[in-house]
Amino acid sequence: MSLLEVENLWVRFPTRQGVFDAVRGVSFTLDRERLGIVGESGSGKSMTGRAILRLIRKPGIVEADYIKLEGQNLLELTEPQMREVRGQRISMVMQDPKFSLNPVMTVGDQIMEAYLLHNNTSKAQARAKSIAMLEAVSIRDPERVMRAYPHEVSGGMGQRIMIAMMLIPDPQILIADEPTSALDVSVQRQVLDIMDGLVKERGMGLIFISHDLNLVSEFCDRVLIMYAGRIVEVCDADKLHQAQHPYTRGLLNSLPRLDQPRKHLEVLKRDDTWADAASVRGGQ
C-alpha cells in the first residue's frame, strides 16, 4: 500500500461564466520518495497540493474517488479530524515565508508554540527541542534566531525556519509548494539540501511543487508534468531530459542555456489536444 493514493481528483471553481475546472481527474500515488509536480502557472499543480489537505477555499469544490493516507480516505474525515491530519501527518511549506510567519511573535515563540501544540511537555524542553530543530535545518546561531522577529531574518533563513516548524510533529508527508522560488540561487541549494537530508533521514514522502524543471529533475525521484489541470507525462526525474511529451520537450527547450547560445529561443507551440487527452496515471 502506498503512503498516499489520489484517485480521480477534481478541483472546481464556479464562476459567472460557468464552472472552471482547475484540476481535472488527476490520479497518482506517493511512497517514501520525492515526487515532483511541475507545470506552468494555471496548470493546477498548487491546487493539487492544496486539495490533498482540503485547503481549497470556498467556493472551490474538491471531488475525488478517494484521497487515501495509509488507506484512510481523507475526504471522509470531519473538519476537526482533518485539522489533526494537517500538521500532524501532512505538513505544507509555502512559497514565501514572510506570509507564513506571524510578524509580531519572535521566531522562537512560534516554534515553541507549534511544538507545545503537538507535545505535552515543559517549556524548557520545548525550547531545547526548538533549538535542536533549528540546528537540524543548518541554522548556525539558533539562540539568536530564536529571539529574532520574522522581519529580521533573511528569506532563506525564514524558509528554513518554516521547514523546521513543519517538521516538528514528525509528519509522514511534506508538501512543498515552490519553497525556494523566492530565494536566491545559492540559498536555494542550501534549503533543498536540508529538505533532502531530512526526507531521507526520516523516511518521509515529499511532494515538491515547482515551475522549475531543472530543479525538479535534479532534486526529485519521480516527476509528474501537469498541463491544464491534467497530468500529461510521468517520468523518472533523471530521465526528464529524455521526456517524450511535446509539452515537456517544449518547456525544456524554451529555457536559455549557457552551453547552447542561439539567437532565438524555441517557443512552445501549444496544442489543444494536450488539454483534451486523458490524464496520465502517476503511480505504479
Binding site: H211, P256, R257
Partner: peptide, 30 residues
Amino acid sequence: VSVQAEILNLLTDLREEHKLTYLMVSHDLP
C-alpha cells in the same frame, strides 16, 4: 519559462529592429 522565451525573443527582435541599447538586470545567469 515558455512565456519567458517569447518575451526574450521579442526583446531580441525589437533590439534589432529599433537599434536599441539594452541595460538588463537579472538574477538569472542563463
